[in-house]
């Protein structure tokens, strides 16, 4: 008989699933195998908060199963799942690739996407790195130019040297202060 490969996700009622996961998952497995499915992989995917309430439930346990089954059996399985109260919701997806290949590829792609978003995130480490570099940059080239221009700055023509070299800064406060004082004095005199 021709079979397809499927991925199935079940939302299990949380009270039952947390109390006895094996038992509740076993019920689902039973339904699947009853209709001729051959289970390949099964795992408890997650126990998480739902984005919205389903049948009055805020949380649910996600149960992920990969299986092979004849296509006609899916309809029968869905009828049985509808009657079951433990399964809140289910989703079957027909896979285009063999199960193992699919699982490996998805895991790899997930990592790639996570890596990519880490690299390109706007508010992550990348930006902080750039900012620290930007802060360092003005400090970096300063001493190099300062050394060359220092004698000129020391000798005279302070305003020009001040504009050209940051090294003159150490001298400028001292130079500026008296200037400011004189200006102040001048203004006081005029008043």
């Amino acid at each position: 008989m021709r079979t397809n490969e499927y991925e199935a996700m079940f939302l299990l009622e949380n009270n039952a699933a947390t109390a006895d996961f094996e038992g509740t998952a076993g019920q689902v497995d039973e339904i699947l195998t009853k209709h001729g499915a051959e289970l390949v992989m099964k795992e408890k995917w997650d126990e998480r908060k739902l984005a919205y309430e389903i049948k009055g439930q805020r949380r649910a346990t996600y149960y992920l199963v990969y299986f092979r089954a004849p296509p006609a059996s899916i309809d029968e399985v869905e009828v049985d799942l509808g009657l079951n109260e433990i399964v809140l919701r289910h989703l079957f997806i027909k896979l285009e690739e063999p199960i193992q290949v699919h699982v490996d590829k998805r895991a790899k792609e997930r990592e790639l996407l996570a890596e990519d978003s880490r690299k390109h995130s706007l508010s992550g480490w990348g930006r902080r790195d750039r900012r620290s570099k930007r802060d360092e940059k003005p400090a970096g080239p300063k001493p190099v130019t300062a050394e060359g221009d220092k004698p000129a700055a020391a000798e005279g023509d302070k305003p020009a040297a001040e504009a050209a070299t940051p090294a003159a800064k150490s001298e400028t406060p001292a130079a500026d202060a008296p200037q400011a004082d004189t200006v102040k004095a001048a203004t006081e005199e005029t008043t």
Binding site: W45, E109, R110
Partner: peptide, 11 residues
């Protein structure tokens, strides 16, 4: 960019 073939609903 990350050369993905398929977008997974679980991601």
């Amino acid at each position: 960019r990350s050369r993905v073939e398929y977008i997974d609903y679980k991601d």
